[in-house]
């Protein structure tokens, strides 16, 4: 599904990604771990098309389609979803209007008519329930005054509504207490399917107790230096990142 080949990217002339290679197949969950500053969030940003990143080499394709040529909105319409580490508060844009606009713009891209109000509300209700999202929050301004946990749950609600092929969760576990983490993880687990894929970016192994990955990769200094199964995460938890740094001096 997702195919990253020898990806190089920089911010303000500083090289951040230095040759990433990663293949993610349909139905798979990949975890990307690594110490702070290794380039994990940068990878997520580059995939979603954040503008201050400059891709200096390599290719990224989603089901054969070149992603790097597309605007952020077209990437989303092709099926890329980035759950933000720090979801943005936008006072004055209602959550529900935001969801409707996003959903209908994606539908329009695929030549589908907008959902009628009734179907849309039904869908929202259903997904809210699925991800345990407080119905009251849907009518509020987007993320405004939401707690950290509510913001992350809102990301998962959007994920459920937009049904992307590839979901990248950037440090979704950061700042969550154990209950919120469990709710977010449950949501993701319910959304896992054979035709979609997840990339979890995380610093800690904790999230992976709730969302069990098929593959774990360690990112260090802009490159994937180690890949393995879920047991690699446990090893990292136990030994920390120092031995990785040591091995890659």
């Amino acid at each position: 599904m997702l195919n990253i080949k020898n990806l190089f990217a920089s911010v303000e002339d500083k090289q951040i990604l230095k040759g990433i290679n990663l293949e993610v197949g349909a139905g798979e969950v990949h975890a990307i771990m690594g110490p702070n500053g290794s380039g994990k969030s940068s990878l997520a940003s580059v995939l979603a098309g954040r503008e201050n990143y400059e891709v200096t080499g390599g290719t990224v394709t989603l089901d054969g389609k070149d992603l790097l040529d597309l605007s952020p909105e077209d990437r989303a319409r092709e099926g890329v979803f980035l759950a933000f580490q720090y979801p943005v508060e936008i006072p004055g844009v209602s959550n529900i209007n935001f969801l409707k606009t996003a959903l209908n713009e994606i539908r329009a891209y695929h030549g589908k008519a907008p959902l009628d109000a009734k179907t849309f509300l039904q869908l929202t209700k259903e997904k809210q329930k699925l991800v345990e999202f407080d119905a009251k929050l849907v009518n509020r301004s987007l993320n405004e005054g939401f707690s950290g946990g509510e913001k992350k749950r809102n990301e998962i609600l959007q994920l459920a509504m937009l049904e992307p092929k590839l979901a990248i969760l950037d440090e979704t576990d950061s700042g969550l207490d154990i209950d919120a983490l469990r709710i977010v993880a449950n949501g993701v687990n319910k959304l896992r399917a054979k035709d979609n894929a997840f990339v979890l970016i995380t610093h800690y192994q904790r999230l992976l107790e709730y969302i069990v990955p098929d593959f774990v990769h360690v990112l260090y200094n802009g490159r994937i230096v180690k890949s393995g199964g879920k047991e690699l995460a446990l090893e990292l938890e136990e030994k920390g990142y120092d031995w990785i740094k040591e091995e890659n001096k």
């Binding site: 979603a48 098309g49 954040r50 503008e51 605007s71 952020p72 909105e73 990437r75 989303a76 319409r77 979803f81 980035l82 933000f84 979801p87 943005v88 936008i90 844009v93 935001f98 606009t101 996003a102 959903l103 713009e105 994606i106 891209y109 959007q158 937009l162």
Partner: peptide
């Protein structure tokens, strides 16, 4: 950042 957030959800510029 807010613009990017909206666009990353498929909302055109």
């Amino acid at each position: 950042e807010a613009l990017f957030y909206l666009r990353s959800r498929g909302i055109g510029a």
